[in-house]
Amino acid sequence: MQKIIPIHSVDAVAASDKIHARSIDGIFSRWRWIMVWLTQAFFYGVPWLNWSSRQAVLFDLEAKRFYLFGAVLFPQDLIYLASLLVVSALLLFFATAVVGRVWCGFACPQTVYTAIFMWVENKCEGSHQNRKRLDKTRWTAEKLLRRGGKNLAWVVFGLWTGFTFVGYFTAMRPLMADALSMTVSPWTTFWILFYGLFTYLNAGLLREKVCLHMCPYGRFQGSLMDAHTLNVAYDHRRGEPRRGTVENDRRLAKEGHHQCTSS
């Protein structure tokens, strides 16, 4: 007769459990922060650049013109954009097949913004152990200040990200003037709030759940990697609880012997 194991006795992490990541340091962590600085300097800085008395990079959907520094593209030129996207996708696939998930670990927007939001969280609430203790304590003035300050910083950063994103489609300098004079159009306001909220939810609340359940790229990465591809993965030989390799080798050999004899 098959033994039924109660679900509450299964030693597993529930999907609703909150993960508090520990702050780490090392060469790969430092490279990640270098990529954070480079990508965000590009994203937040480019809309403010001018080229021949106009914005250097502007996707003017209303006028149906895309300005890329000295080039002006029209709708009939979208074949070049499609070709660029195809080449970028092939380069991404090639990099994954050769060196593993470098895109996901260092340059993916979800990774970059999650790292920024986690840095804010660490500054406002302390280390991962402090955050765990803060979760279990009742609401006090200190907890309200720390949690409120963290979420306020997240909201401000998300809104500035949404504002910058809209600046790629609406000229940034006039948009800033409209924002300062409180005359931003309703549709522009909607997209700023939408993208700001999107950033807040993805990087602040969902985090790794986006990679697990929403990212389409993660669904076919397995077909791009083999046994020799660099990959951060669970080592089944170590087992849980952690034991020595020799001990686990004996355990696996014993389990294999039992399976052979039982079959």
Rank of each mutant, 00 (worst) to 15 (best):
residue 194 F to L: 06
residue 226 D to H: 08
residue 51 W to C: 12
residue 253 A to W: 03
residue 61 L to K: 08
residue 46 V to E: 11
residue 245 T to I: 14
residue 128 H to A: 14
residue 122 N to P: 00
residue 87 V to K: 05
residue 162 G to F: 08
residue 257 H to L: 15
residue 170 T to F: 03
residue 127 S to W: 07
residue 139 W to G: 07
residue 36 V to A: 02
residue 180 L to M: 11
residue 46 V to Q: 13
residue 111 T to N: 13
residue 217 Y to D: 05
residue 152 L to E: 05
residue 248 N to D: 02
residue 49 L to E: 04
residue 259 Q to T: 09
residue 99 V to I: 13
residue 8 H to I: 01
residue 166 V to L: 15
residue 59 F to V: 05
residue 1 M to Q: 05
residue 85 L to I: 07
residue 103 W to P: 02
residue 212 L to C: 06
residue 26 G to W: 04
residue 88 S to W: 08
residue 153 A to T: 10
residue 24 I to S: 11
residue 112 V to C: 04
residue 44 Y to C: 06
residue 18 K to I: 04
residue 69 F to D: 04
residue 257 H to F: 15
residue 40 Q to K: 09
residue 211 C to G: 05
residue 101 R to D: 01
residue 46 V to G: 14
residue 42 F to S: 01
residue 23 S to W: 01
residue 5 I to Q: 08
residue 237 R to F: 11
residue 135 D to K: 12
residue 168 Y to S: 06
residue 25 D to A: 10
residue 59 F to W: 10
residue 126 G to W: 03
residue 47 P to D: 07
residue 194 F to K: 01
residue 95 A to L: 08
residue 13 V to S: 08
residue 206 L to F: 13
residue 109 P to N: 05
residue 191 W to M: 12
residue 32 R to P: 01
residue 101 R to N: 02
residue 155 V to Y: 10
residue 230 L to D: 11
residue 115 A to T: 09
residue 153 A to E: 07
residue 125 E to S: 12
residue 167 G to R: 03
residue 227 A to P: 00
residue 205 L to M: 14
residue 52 S to R: 13
residue 156 V to C: 14
residue 252 L to P: 01
residue 210 V to P: 02
residue 197 L to P: 00
residue 99 V to L: 11
residue 86 V to L: 15
residue 221 Q to Y: 06
residue 99 V to C: 12
residue 254 K to T: 03
residue 123 K to G: 04
residue 68 L to V: 11
residue 145 L to F: 14
residue 151 N to H: 15
residue 248 N to I: 00
residue 164 T to H: 11
residue 56 A to S: 13
residue 27 I to K: 14
residue 157 F to H: 09
residue 143 K to G: 07
residue 161 T to F: 14
residue 129 Q to F: 13
residue 89 A to S: 13
residue 160 W to D: 05
residue 171 A to N: 15
residue 33 W to S: 01
residue 150 K to N: 09
residue 62 E to V: 07
residue 144 L to P: 00
residue 260 C to K: 07
residue 157 F to I: 10
residue 49 L to F: 13
residue 142 E to I: 07
